[in-house]
Computed example of a mutant assay.
Amino acid sequence: MAALSELRQQITALEDQIADQLAAHPDAAIFTSLPRSGTVRAARLLAEIGDARGRFPTPESLACLAGAAPSTKQSGKVKVVTFRWAVDKQLRGAVIDFAGDSHRANPWAADLYQLARDRGHDHPHAVRILARAWIHIIWRCWQDQQPYDPTKHRALQRLQNPAA
C-alpha cells in the first residue's frame, strides 16, 4: 500500500509540473479549450503538434503526419485506399486519444462518430474519421491563435439549431 501511495504522489507531482509548463506556454488556451482535453491531454497535443506553425502549411499536412488521413495508391485503373502506416506515431496517439474521447462531450463529434459507425466503420476507423475533422478545427484555431469556441463552430451550431 505504501508503494501505491508513493506512486500516486509522484503522479500528482508530474501532473502539477505538466500543468505549470502548459500554463506558461502561449498556445495553452488553444489546446485547453478543446472538449475533454484536460491538462495532460492538452499538453500532449501541444507537445506533439508544437508551435512551429510553418511546419504544417495546411490541415491536411497535419492530418497525414498524424495518420488521420487515408493513404491512396493508384496504378493504372486500380485505386486502393488504405490505413496510413508511415506516420508520427506519438502525434497519432495524441490526436486519436483526444478524438476518441471528444465524442462524449461534443454533440457534433458524437454525431460525426455515429455517422461513421452507421456507415459500417469499426470504432478505430470512426475515431480516425473524427480525428481528421478535429485536426481541421485544431489547425484553424492554432493558425489563428484563437481558442476553440463552440459558438463559432458552424457544424456544431447547425446540429444544435437545425431551424436556424
Results as ranks from 00 to 15, higher is better:
A164T: 08
H25G: 04
T39P: 00
L115T: 11
P26W: 03
D97A: 10
W139T: 09
L91R: 09
S33R: 08
P124R: 06
K152T: 15
A164S: 13
Y113M: 07
K79F: 06
R119K: 15
T58M: 05
A23Y: 01
H136G: 15
L91H: 10
A52L: 11
E6T: 09
C141A: 12
E15V: 01
S5L: 06
I30H: 03
A28G: 08
I49R: 02
W139L: 10
F83P: 04
V78Y: 08
A163R: 11
V87G: 00
M1R: 15
P107Y: 06
A99H: 01
D111T: 14
A133P: 07
D16V: 04
A133G: 07
Q90F: 10
G93N: 04
T58K: 03
A99M: 04
A66M: 10
T12K: 08
R104Y: 14
A126R: 02
S71K: 10
I135R: 05
G76V: 09
Y113T: 03
P35C: 05
W134Y: 10
H121A: 07
E60V: 04
Q74T: 09
N161V: 00
V127I: 14
D122T: 13
R154G: 10
Q114D: 11
C141G: 07
R44C: 04
P59V: 03
A155V: 12
V95E: 07
A24H: 06
L65V: 14
I96R: 00
Q9L: 12
D27A: 11
D51W: 10
A66F: 10
C141Q: 06
D20I: 05
W139V: 11
Q74R: 12
V78M: 11
D88F: 08
E6K: 13
R128K: 12
I30E: 02
G54W: 04
V127F: 02
R84S: 15
T32V: 14
F31P: 09
Q160L: 15
T12S: 08
L34R: 06
A105C: 12
